Lab assay of single mutants.
Amino acid sequence: PDDLEKRARELLKRGKNPDEIREYLRNAGYDQSQAEEALKRAL
């Protein structure tokens, strides 16, 4: 898994919901489609 996916998994483990994770990834400078893909793979 790429770093983005790892980060998404990490956040899920900490109890973040998908919307929070999307926002976090966007704020971290990733584009929307990258964030969506990583989140899908992590779920």
Rank of each mutant, 00 (worst) to 15 (best):
P1E: 12
P1Y: 13
P1F: 14
P1C: 13
P1K: 11
P1G: 12
P1W: 14
P1S: 12
D2L: 11
D2V: 11
D2K: 09
D2S: 12
D2I: 12
D2T: 12
D2E: 12
D3P: 07
D3F: 13
D3E: 13
D3I: 09
D3A: 11
D3W: 14
D3S: 11
D3N: 09
L4K: 03
L4G: 07
L4C: 09
L4P: 10
L4W: 06
L4Q: 03
E5A: 14
E5S: 10
E5T: 13
K6L: 12
K6R: 14
K6V: 10
K6P: 03
K6T: 11
R7V: 15
R7G: 04
R7W: 15
R7Q: 14
R7A: 14
R7L: 15
R7H: 11
A8K: 00
A8G: 01
A8Q: 00
A8R: 01
A8F: 06
A8L: 15
A8D: 00
A8N: 00
R9A: 10
R9F: 05
R9V: 09
R9Y: 06
R9C: 07
R9S: 08
R9H: 08
R9W: 05
R9M: 10
E10P: 00
E10H: 05
E10Y: 03
E10F: 02
E10V: 04
E10N: 05
L11Q: 05
L11W: 07
L11M: 14
L12T: 03
L12I: 12
L12M: 06
L12A: 06
L12Q: 04
L12G: 02
L12C: 04
L12N: 03
K13Q: 14
K13Y: 07
K13A: 14
K13T: 08
K13R: 12
K13P: 01
K13L: 13
R14H: 14
R14I: 14
R14W: 09
R14L: 15
R14Y: 10
R14S: 15
G15L: 03
G15F: 03
G15R: 01
G15H: 03
G15M: 03
G15T: 02
G15Q: 02
G15S: 02
G15D: 02
G15E: 01
K16A: 13
K16S: 10
K16Y: 15
N17F: 07
N17D: 11
N17R: 10
N17H: 13
N17K: 12
N17E: 09
N17S: 15
N17Y: 06
N17P: 06
N17L: 12
P18L: 12
P18M: 10
P18Q: 07
P18R: 06
D19Y: 05
D19K: 08
D19F: 06
D19V: 06
D19W: 06
E20F: 10
E20T: 04
E20I: 03
E20C: 05
E20V: 04
E20Y: 09
I21T: 02
I21V: 13
I21Q: 00
I21R: 00
I21A: 03
I21P: 00
R22P: 02
R22Q: 06
R22F: 13
E23D: 12
E23L: 04
E23P: 00
E23T: 04
E23G: 03
Y24T: 10
Y24F: 13
Y24Q: 08
Y24A: 14
L25I: 04
L25T: 00
L25Y: 04
L25M: 10
L25K: 00
R26P: 00
R26N: 06
R26W: 07
R26M: 15
R26G: 06
R26V: 14
N27Y: 06
N27D: 11
N27I: 11
N27F: 07
A28S: 09
A28E: 14
G29Y: 02
G29W: 01
G29E: 01
G29S: 02
G29R: 01
G29V: 01
G29A: 02
G29N: 02
G29C: 03
G29H: 02
Y30E: 02
Y30Q: 02
Y30A: 12
Y30P: 01
Y30V: 09
D31F: 03
D31Y: 03
D31A: 08
D31Q: 07
D31P: 12
D31W: 03
D31G: 09
Q32P: 14
Q32D: 14
Q32C: 09
Q32K: 11
Q32R: 11
Q32I: 13
Q32A: 14
S33A: 14
S33L: 14
S33G: 13
S33M: 14
S33E: 14
S33Y: 13
S33N: 13
S33D: 14
S33R: 12
S33W: 13
Q34W: 08
Q34I: 11
A35Y: 12
A35M: 09
A35G: 03
A35H: 01
A35N: 01
A35Q: 04
A35R: 03
E36V: 04
E36F: 03
E36P: 00
E36Q: 05
E36R: 03
E37F: 02
E37G: 06
E37N: 08
E37R: 08
E37H: 07
E37K: 07
E37T: 08
A38R: 01
A38V: 10
A38G: 05
A38Q: 02
A38P: 01
A38N: 01
A38D: 01
A38C: 08
A38W: 09
L39Q: 01
L39A: 02
L39R: 00
L39F: 02
L39V: 11
L39W: 01
L39S: 01
L39M: 06
K40M: 13
K40Y: 09
K40H: 13
K40V: 10
K40T: 11
R41M: 08
R41I: 07
R41H: 07
R41A: 10
R41W: 05
R41D: 04
A42D: 01
A42E: 02
A42K: 01
A42G: 03
A42Y: 04
A42R: 01
A42L: 14
A42C: 06
A42W: 05
A42S: 04
A42N: 02
L43S: 06
L43M: 12
L43V: 07
